[in-house]
């Protein structure tokens, strides 16, 4: 599961911070916070590039491996969490993937706000291919196969049909 947050060093979409050197140098690159457990599972080291993929798209980020984020254990099932700061984009002094590329548009019934703080995702170690190669790559890695809501105590309903399962069982999502 991914969750998003803001950093003190940047302001929202970064329009007022990514263009200022004094703020940019404090957080100069997009990163994703992952737990040592997940890093081990994925085989990535601190500072390696990883790609975060959802149905909407994919971004790459540097893995910031830290005990500050921990997997949650629910009934014996482990749910890994990935922390993604907002703020980055393609312009400015420092650039990086926009976490918003990954989030879905949804509407809370009272105020039609989107759900930005929790979503399922897939993680692929390595860098994001550029150019046309991206299309093929994301088709391969987009989360598929798992049922919308995998109960911790139930076996996956229909895993045979879809593509590959996301590594480590974090991030199962339906695809309509």
């Amino acid at each position: 599961m991914l969750t998003t947050y803001r950093l003190t060093e940047h302001h929202t979409a970064g329009g007022m911070s990514r263009f200022l050197s004094h703020l940019s140098e404090l957080q100069p690159e997009m990163f994703a916070e992952i737990s040592p457990e997940l890093a081990r599972e994925l085989g990535v080291k601190n500072g390696d590039y990883i790609c975060i993929v959802t149905l909407r798209g994919a971004i790459e980020a540097r893995a910031l491996v830290s005990r500050r984020i921990r997997p949650v254990h629910l009934n014996g099932k482990t749910v890994h969490q990935v922390g993604l700061p907002y703020h980055f984009g393609t312009s400015g002094l420092v650039r990086g993937g926009a976490a918003n590329d990954l989030l879905s548009i949804s509407g809370e019934p009272n105020v039609t706000i989107m759900e930005a703080k929790a979503a399922a995702c897939n993680i692929v170690p390595g860098r994001l291919p550029r150019g046309a190669a991206f299309e093929e790559w994301i088709n391969k890695h987009v989360p598929t196969g798992g049922p919308a809501n995998l109960h911790p105590e139930q076996p996956p309903l229909d895993t045979a049909k879809g593509g590959e399962n996301p590594p480590g069982g974090h991030g199962k999502e339906e695809k309509e």
């Binding site: 601190n46 500072g47 590039y49 790459e60 393609t90 650039r95």
Partner: peptide, 27 residues
């Protein structure tokens, strides 16, 4: 289209910069 000097990477850039080698928890 990009600031290439000193540590700035564009998303999806082809060449990873030299990695800072530090491990978590105060490596």
């Amino acid at each position: 289209g990009a600031v290439t000097g000193r540590g700035v990477d564009i998303a999806g850039g082809p060449i990873p910069r030299k990695l800072a080698t530090a491990s978590p928890s105060g490596g």
